[in-house]
Design a protein around this nucleic acid. Structure first.
Lengths: 340, 340
DNA sequence: TTGTAGGCGTTATCAT
DNA sequence: ATGATAACGCCTACAA
């Protein structure tokens, strides 16, 4: 493979081009003040050597890395993938690079803390944290030092900014949709804030709004489901209560699990039951599944998150703010008028 | 937000703990030779200051960053997400961190080059490149300096290692499956190597194998589809040729597009047509879609890629190798006996 | 057990 | 237009 440790330094380039390292630095950074012919020679030498400037050495003295760090909880979830893509694109457009660190599969908080430190240690100039799970305290510790934005999750803290899809608006929108379809007894899968800072408020709002409208709400705390019976158990309970005509899941993957469990029993939505998801992320938005869900505008979210950090990094803004953006209903085929 | 530039340095910690920076360094790096009481004071001071060592300064002198870089072409594709998760997990287990850089949405090669340089500039000790697109030349340039592994894509070069799912085996397996179902005239969507170094060989093998078996193969170069008519055009052509009973897509998302186009015409697989995909990545593996596909063992792939790069980094190995691992057929509901 | 000094690769400043 | 030199924050001898 490679001969170990032979990375050419700026001095190697300088020697090869027959100039001093200052000239090389100025040439490559384009700060001017170098004769055209000299530049030519320098560039040639650098290319021949395959020279790539050591970002660490550069960052040390320049005190700028032009890099923003993204922490992503679970890369295998397309939700974060789309968010990341949007961020990456915007950052590039504004002249920044993005390096990402992810939690390892075991969603241990200590892993996430480590990942955050990796990023900060790398001297990123800004931090975008994408996780509904990391305790805000861990984030705050770094936010003192680096402009930080929480993306995809609401926050109230003044020490950092956040950009998120309005969970109250979304939960309410989904609830209104089912109510207007005619459902009156509905199961809502709920989560506690410790499990997810996005799914908790949205499911709480679904339940609250339904009750406000006058519906019967059967709450199904996710922890109980995970602990005993699993999704199949949940569906069994669901079907046992003949008055329930719809079930609201906290996310699309969760809704998919429910649909699969129904399928295993030879049932399908919306005939047996209406089922709703949440997030609206490809590829689960395929018309073939026809999932009724709430779309989070991930591209917009990523763009705004980057804009927010960058404007802090560049000192254009000093105060933090919390932007909520609205999602939108996708009325699919998994939810219809009550059929049972 | 944060007071700009106040990151405490090792000196701040030293001052606060009333010792010299050497003592702080030794304490925090756990290299021993520091009195227990002193360690206590140092750790306390570091915690109070929220000290995070500057990885750049550290990396410069230590010449080790314990970081491996992952380049991922398209983060929004769950394929890469799962790969990344597996890599992350394995790397953590072996004491390395992973930082990821992704190409921006515009799959421009120059972007990918830049991302690669970002990683190398960050002094990663190893590189895992996940992209069926980046020209091998770009990768080779860095492979001279940093142990590099191509993940998820075959390579032949001796300057680097690769770990990939055997495309020939997979393409052949899918072809055999359709043949054994009884299909005799089959459309195969093909790609040229410039478009994808994985999809090209697998689709080529599908076509080759089918012909070998004695089937009629109608090749549908993806470029022509993209250029005119799109997927709907493709499906129209497909249906016009009454003898065609099956179509093989190069990936699952592609298969999904075909299924959606059929759906728009009120048709579905396998009644109207048998459709196969390739990759077998969640969430498209849901039984609800019942996609017939070829699963790539992504977890294994990620693990091996990291193992390979780490053993080079640690000097346990010096020769490169190319590992092909076998995927597996998922016989779903989208492909069945010919019906037309 | 603790402190001092030197240098990693780069940019910025100041001479030349 | 070019070259020397001083940091940047940290680790690692080596000296005390």
């Amino acid at each position: 493979m490679p001969d170990p440790r032979t990375a050419p330094t700026i001095i190697d380039v300088a020697r090869r081009a027959g100039v001093s390292k200052s000239v090389v630095s100025r040439t490559l950074s384009g700060s001017g003040g170098v004769a055209a012919g000299t530049q030519e020679r320098v560039r040639l030498a650098a290319a021949e050597l395959g020279y790539v400037a050591n970002a660490m050495a550069r960052g040390m003295v320049a005190r700028r890395t032009h890099t923003i760090g993204a922490f992503v909880r679970d890369a295998s979830n397309p939700y974060y993938g789309h968010l990341l893509t949007a961020m990456q694109e915007r950052a590039a457009a504004r002249g920044y690079r993005v390096v990402t660190a992810t939690g390892s599969g075991s969603f241990a908080v200590s892993d996430e803390r480590r990942a955050l430190e990796t990023l900060v240690g790398l001297q990123v100039e800004g931090l975008v944290v994408c996780s509904g799970l990391v305790p805000v305290a861990d984030v705050l510790q770094h936010a003192r030092r680096v402009p930080t934005v929480l993306a995809g999750r609401p926050a109230r803290d003044e020490a950092l900014s956040s950009v998120y899809c309005d969970e109250i608006h979304g939960g309410r929108g989904m609830a209104d949709h089912l109510w207007s379809l005619g459902h009156r007894r509905i199961m809502v899968v709920t989560l506690r804030p410790e499990r997810s800072l996005t799914q908790a408020p949205r499911t709480a709002e679904m339940a609250r709004r339904l009750r406000e409208l006058g519906a019967d709400v059967v709450e199904a705390p996710d922890e109980e489901t995970r602990a005993g019976g699993g999704i199949d158990g949940l569906v069994a309970r669901l079907l046992a209560d003949r008055a329930i005509t719809a079930v609201m899941a906290p996310t699309d993957p969760y809704a998919l699990e429910i649909l699969e469990a129904l399928d295993r029993r030879g049932l399908r939505a919306p005939d047996a039951l209406s089922v709703t998801g949440y997030d609206g992320v490809a590829p689960l938005t395929t018309p073939l599944l026809g999932l009724t869900t709430w779309v989070q505008p991930l591209a917009d979210l990523g763009t705004r998150a980057v804009d927010e950090v960058v404007s802090h990094v560049e000192g254009l803004t000093t105060d933090t703010r919390h932007q909520a953006i609205n999602g939108q209903l996708i009325s699919g085929r998994t939810a219809g008028p009550p059929r049972r």
